[in-house]
Simulated assay, not measured.
Amino acid sequence: MKRIPIFLFFSVAVLSVSCSRFHNTANNTTAARYVVISPIYNEIIWALGAQEQVVGIDLSTTYPPDVKKVQTVGYHRALSAEGILSLHPTAVIHDNNIGPPQVVQQLQQLNIPMKTFSSKNDSFDGTKALIREVGSYFHKEVRAEELCKTLDSQREASLEKVKQYTDHPRVAVIHYGRASNVYLVVGKGGGGDGGGVSQMIELAGGQMAVENNGMQRMESPEIIAQANPDVILLTDFAYDRLGGSIDQIKALPGVAPSNAARNNRIYRIEENVLNYFGPRSGENIAKVAAIIHQK
């Protein structure tokens, strides 16, 4: 019987391990190590109770608080391949809102499975479909159904609370784009980081003051000044970046002459409450309403 050289055996073993690592079926959860780059995906995964398989998240993921215990791989549009690879992922789960392109290409060239769910959280029905899809992927179907029922019941309860308000304030929402380091005004409709904003504002009994679709840079004071909102909401990072200083917020282009500034109706709101639909959006309607209707 011929002896197999030990170095050859070792080489084959290493190659076998390497191949199995990068060619695992994406939902093989036996030894899964997921890097999840999406705030909504992560929130759903934690709500499902499947978070033990997540080894890395993006900086935009801020809820639930326990996510802070997980290693971050950077901002979702300014990722580095090295940071992701250092976590030895069996798959990267993302919502197609990632970059830069060369990093995505690098991960693909290394044959790391990339998973995106087909359902879109652009409405309550879409969110329930996404919860069920993620639940199926992580084998948490029963819990997914529970989350969908809770979402529906909390939505109905919130809409009843909204009926108590008789005013319909015009609301402007200011967001900070960390990829380009600029303040942005969220308009009515559109997708991306502010996809759920206008729907949440309207469900909460308000109106969007800025009618333009999507987000636009606050380069001209006319954007806010002409909209003249009754209320201005700043998402958490935008607000905190200015130290919560109302004077500094009023110094942003077009803010000072607005009704919101004159009446000091400028408030902070968590991005994960306002910007996208998720498992908590039913109860978040009431939270948004309580903020925009206060005087």
Rank of each mutant, 00 (worst) to 15 (best):
A225I: 03
K149I: 01
K140G: 11
V171Q: 01
V162N: 09
M215T: 12
F277N: 03
N284I: 02
E160H: 14
Y63R: 08
T90E: 00
T62V: 15
G244Q: 04
D95L: 06
A32V: 11
K120G: 00
G195I: 13
N27Q: 06
H94F: 15
Q199D: 11
L233N: 03
Q216K: 10
T72D: 12
L85E: 07
P221C: 10
N42I: 15
L233H: 02
A47C: 05
V210N: 14
R262M: 14
E146P: 00
V142A: 10
V185G: 10
K149Y: 00
K68T: 12
S180F: 15
L184F: 08
R155D: 02
M218T: 09
G206M: 04
D66L: 13
Q106G: 11
P257W: 03
G56E: 07
E202K: 02
Q207A: 07
P169L: 01
N121F: 06
A157L: 07
I249H: 11
V92H: 11
A47W: 07
R155I: 02
I44W: 03
I266V: 10
L242E: 05
E160V: 12
D152A: 06
G56C: 04
P253S: 09
N275I: 09
I201Q: 08
N28E: 14
D230Q: 08
Q105E: 14
R268Y: 10
Q102M: 04
T127C: 04
Y165T: 01
H23F: 14
L159S: 05
N213G: 04
V70R: 06
S16V: 14
H23I: 08
L252W: 09
L87T: 06
Q109S: 15
V14I: 13
K161L: 11
S153I: 02
G282Y: 08
V255Y: 14
A260M: 08
L203Y: 15
N24D: 15
I6L: 11
N96F: 11
A251R: 08
S86M: 13
L159V: 04
Y267K: 01
K250M: 12
I266Y: 06
V210C: 12
E211I: 02
D230R: 04
G206Q: 05
E133D: 06
Q294M: 03
G126V: 11
Y63H: 10
K115T: 14
L48C: 04
P64H: 11
P229M: 00
V104I: 12
V70H: 07
N121K: 03
V288G: 09
Q226T: 12
V73W: 03
K120V: 13
H94A: 10
R132A: 07
I98V: 13
Y34F: 14
Q216G: 09
G194N: 11
V55D: 05
K68F: 15
L233A: 00
L79W: 00
F10I: 11
R170K: 07
